[in-house]
Write a protein that binds this DNA or RNA. Sequence first.
DNA 1: CTCACTTCCTTCGACCACAAAACTAAGTCA
DNA 2: TGACTTAGTTTTGTGGTCGAAGGAAGTGAG
Lengths: 392, 392
Amino acid sequence: MTIDDAPRDALRGGPRELLRWVATGAAVSRADLSRLSGLSPSTVSQRVEALISQGLLEEAGAGQSRGGRRPRQLAVPTGGAVVGAIDLGAHHARVGALDLSGRVVQARTLPVRIEDGPEVVLGALLNEVATLVDGDPAASRGGSATGALRGVGIGIPGPVQHSTGRIVSPSRMPGWNGFDVAAFCAGRVDVPVIVDNDANLMALGAHRTAHSELDHAVYIKAGTGIGSGVISSGRLHRGAQGSAGDISHCRVVADPAPPCTCGNAGCLEAVASGAALVTALREQGVPVSDLTGVIRLIDDGDRQATALARQAGRAVGEILAVVVNFFNPQVVAIGGRLADCEPLLASMRATLYERCLPLATQTLLIERVAAGQDLGITGAAHLVIDHVVAAT
Amino acid sequence: MTIDDAPRDALRGGPRELLRWVATGAAVSRADLSRLSGLSPSTVSQRVEALISQGLLEEAGAGQSRGGRRPRQLAVPTGGAVVGAIDLGAHHARVGALDLSGRVVQARTLPVRIEDGPEVVLGALLNEVATLVDGDPAASRGGSATGALRGVGIGIPGPVQHSTGRIVSPSRMPGWNGFDVAAFCAGRVDVPVIVDNDANLMALGAHRTAHSELDHAVYIKAGTGIGSGVISSGRLHRGAQGSAGDISHCRVVADPAPPCTCGNAGCLEAVASGAALVTALREQGVPVSDLTGVIRLIDDGDRQATALARQAGRAVGEILAVVVNFFNPQVVAIGGRLADCEPLLASMRATLYERCLPLATQTLLIERVAAGQDLGITGAAHLVIDHVVAAT
DNA sequence: CTCACTTCCTTCGACCACAAAACTAAGTCA
DNA sequence: TGACTTAGTTTTGTGGTCGAAGGAAGTGAG
C-alpha cells in the first residue's frame, strides 16, 4: 500500500484541524471551532456533523453557559482504541493502542531482537497491537464502526521511504535492508499501514503535543542511536529521499575519533549515542552492560561517565549549532533516553548558545521533550489519524 | 509597509503559477496551461482573461497547429520594464529593471559605499532604478498601466526581517542596524517595496530559473561574505527570525583558526569568504587588493591562493555536509563570485561526498548556479511579481 | 472539394464550499 | 417578565471549479 505525503490542507480549518482542536481541548463547542478556525458557524456545523456521522467526533452533553445558551460540548470518542502504533527501537519496541484524539489507551514495551529479521519481529508486534486493541473493553463493548481499528502506524529506527513504506540501507538493522514494511503489514491487517522513521514520529508527536502553534521545530532523539525529526511550516520535513534529519553520521571533533559502524570515524553517533557511551565506558574499564547502566552512573555522578556525557552534549551541540543557524527553528527539543541526562543537556545548551548566531538563539527554545516514552506511538497515531480523516 | 509571507497558494494552479508557466515558456496556450495545471479548460480561460485584463498577460497571435485549430499564443508583456530590483553587495550593487516574466530588461552594476549609511546608499540606488525603468523605451512608449512600475525588490547582504523590511544586527553593515528599509523606500516610491536577504533572493532566482520542479534546494552564495538560501517545499524558508540560511558564523576546523568580525574565531566566514581569502593572502605577504585579485591568482594556479581556496572549499563542504544530512535537499548549488573558482568547488564536492550519508548524496545534484550576476535581481523581481499577482 | 476528425477555446448549467443573514433554542440578569 | 447574550441551524446567496456541449479553426483522406 502506498501512502502519499501529508496533504497540504492539514492546516487552517481542514477537518483534521477541527478534530485536533477538539482533541487537544482547545475547542469544546462548535462556537469555539468557529472562533478558532475563522470559518463561519454554518460551515463548522456542517463539518462537525460530517465528522460525527463518521464516528470521528461525538457530542458530550452541555457545557457551562457564558451568559447565553449553553454550548453542546464536542469530544473525540475517547477510550475507544482505534489506532495501533509500533515504535520500534534497537532493543525494545513500544506498542500501543490509541484513540482518535491521539491519547494512549493501552501501551506496553516489549523486548525485541532486531536480528531475528523483519518478518518475525513485525509479525509478533502486529499480534501485540491486535491484542492491545481487542483488549480494550471500550472497543469490544460497542462493536460499532467507532470501535474498529482504523489504521496502524509504525516507526523504524533507520531510514525509511515514507511514501512506499520501504526500508533503505539501515546501518543498525542487518537483514532489514530493502524490506517493504507497508506491503508486509498490508498482508496481515486490512487497514492502512503507515511507516516512518522513529525520530520523525517522535518529532511529530512532540510537535503536536507541545508545540503545535510553532512553525519550525527540530527534535533530537538521543537513545541507543541518535537522530532527529524536522518540522517545517508545521509539517514534517522528510526531504528528497526521506532521510532528512539523519544527522547520525555527521562528523564532530573528537580526539581520539572513535570508529563508527558506518566505517568512518568521528561520526556523531560514534561519540554521542547511547551505544557509543556504553562502548567508551567499557574501553575505559568500567563494567557497564547497557545504556541503563550508563545513565545510572551519570546520575550517580560518576566522573568518567559524566565526562563522556559532557563530550556527547558538546558534540550534539556542535552539529545542532549548524542546524539552528541554517534552519532557524523556533524550538529545539531533545528526547530519547539520554534526554534526561543533565550533563549532556547542559553542555549541549552551552555549545548551542556559544556557536549560534545571536539572532537565531534570541528567542529559541531549547527544551527537553515531555512524556518521552510514548511520543513515538503518539506521532504514529497522528499520522494515521491524519490519513484516515483525509480519506473521508 | 508590511509585506506578509509568501502566500500558500503559490503552488498548484494559482494565478502566479499560470503566469510563471507562460513566462518560462513551459506553456504557450490556454490548452497548455490546462494540461500543466490540471485545471479544466474553462477555469484556465477564466483566469487567463483575468490576468489579461490586469495587463499581466497578453495574447500574441496564433501558434503552430498540432493537427487542429491553432492555439492563441499567450505571452507575458515583454520589454516593459515594470519591476525594479536592487541587489546590494559589499562593494557593488546590481540594479535592474525587469519585466513581468522576471527577465532582465536593463541592468547595471554600481559601486557602493555601505558606510555612507542607508539613506545615501538606498536613495542613490532608488534613483538609479527609476532611471533604468524610465529609460526603457517600451515603458515610456505606451504610457498605459502595463508599462507602469509595479514594485521594487531589494536584497540586503545581512539579516533582514522580511515581514517588516527591517535590518537586524548586520555584521558587515555598520550604521544599518535596525534600519527600516521598507519604510524608507515607501516614502520614495509609491509601489510595494519588498526586502529580503541577498542570499535568499539568489536562492529564489536560481530556483525559479533552474530548479522550479524541485521541492527542496539549498543555494550557497559565496562572495565577499558567505551565506545561503533555503527552498523547502518549493517555498523560501526564512525560519523563525528570518535568519535561516545564515551559516556564516558556523565554526569549522581550521588551524590556526582565523578571527572573525563577529568576535569569535574559526567561523566559516573567516575561513571561506572572499574577504577571508584576501586577508589570508595578504598575511602571507601576497599583495592582493581585493577578491578579483584573489580569483585571478587562483585561476593562474598560484600555489598559496589555490591552497587557500581548497581549504575554503573543505570548510564550506564541512558545513554543507551537515546541512545536506539534516535537510536532504535535491540540489545544492553554489553561486557568488567564488563559485567559478574550480579548486574551491572541487574540494567542496569531495568533502560533501565523503561526509554525507550515501542515501542523501545518492541523487543529490551539486552544481554551480547559472547566470550568476543577475540571480539576485531576478529573485527580487519574482518576489515582487508574486506579491503583485497575489494582490489582485 | 468535401467530410471526418483533431485541437483549441468558450459558453452554459451544475455542483460544492463557504458565508451572511435570519431564525430557533436556551440560557442570564435586572 | 422582558431585554440581552450566546449557541447552533436553516436558508439563501456567491464564487470557484468542473463537465458537457458547442463553436472556431485547423488537418488530411478520399
